[in-house]
Design a protein around this nucleic acid. Structure first.
Lengths: 154, 154
DNA sequence: TATTGTTATACTCTATAACTATA
DNA sequence: TATAGTTATAGAGTATAACAATA
């Protein structure tokens, strides 16, 4: 694992360093880098894993729902589902009631890979959050969920 | 302002929706989109604004410090500083003690633009955090700062 | 030898518009 | 007319390696 010496000079002590938007960007950059590293051995990246995990967690989400939930453009979901489908990890199932709609269904192979990959992701996440107590993690996720969901109803 | 109808189906109620990494990604995506929109009239984007704001907040940060602080590659800082310098918003000043090092110094024009742009950014940030009480905002920024800074010492 | 900044390059991610098939 | 998904394309963001100047 790369040992990074991050000398940020006096920047950490400025008021700008406490800006929520900046902190979100920095925390997210760290999360993506660490998670991509953890996912490499499974041939996944953050975004493809997110689609797989959403298909594993929810009942037959549509591509439109995945796009809205993951903050992706619908055209990006096409490419991500293509990749997963080629590997036999998910499949598209046309909705009988509305044949424009594709439900994304995880396969057995997808569930198996997801189970292993999500353990690696959890380990990476735990390392990133190691400075927080379990109660603080709960608080953090609760506050993030509150602002993310307020956006969903805008 | 675009009125987005975000139908996320049942995904919001899954355990995956409470994953910190996912919440960070979603909150950050919302923050970047809203902030870029707020910055458009100033000819800035999130990353160029961040460099400008860091130069405004800190005393003569080096490009290396900016890269570490903003989680950017040093080569990206080159391009961002180039853009700001062309517009006369910052200037590079070689360190007399170590002539490899460039300190980034904000100009008067840079300070003036930063003052106006940061008001727009603050408005956008307040809208994103409107669902939280002031105390919750303080808690959120404190927790994010804790995990971001724990990474800095890794 | 090591480090700062730079250049070049390729890859990933994001945004937009236009198209199809269904509704 | 409107919507889900698709295609194509361009632009923005990120990662890597190699180089010059300096330490």
């Amino acid at each position: 694992m790369a040992q990074l010496q991050l000398d940020t000079g006096g920047l950490e002590e400025t008021a700008f360093a406490s800006e929520p938007g900046l902190l979100l960007a920095r925390a997210n950059a760290d999360s993506i880098a660490a998670t991509n590293e953890a996912l490499a051995e499974f041939g996944l990246r953050v975004r493809s894993f997110a689609v797989l995990a959403a298909a594993a967690a929810a009942s037959r989400p549509t591509q439109r729902e995945l796009a809205a939930f993951l903050r992706l453009d619908p055209s990006q979901v096409v490419a991500l589902v293509d990749g997963l489908e080629r590997r036999g990890l998910v499949r598209r199932e046309a909705d009988p009631g509305d044949r424009r709609v594709n439900a994304i269904v995880i396969t057995e192979a997808g569930q198996s890979l997801h189970a292993r990959a999500s353990r690696a992701v959890a380990g990476s996440r735990d390392r990133q959050l190691a400075a927080l107590t379990p109660a603080e993690v709960t608080t953090l996720t609760g506050l993030l969920a509150k602002i993310v969901r307020s956006r969903s109803v805008e």
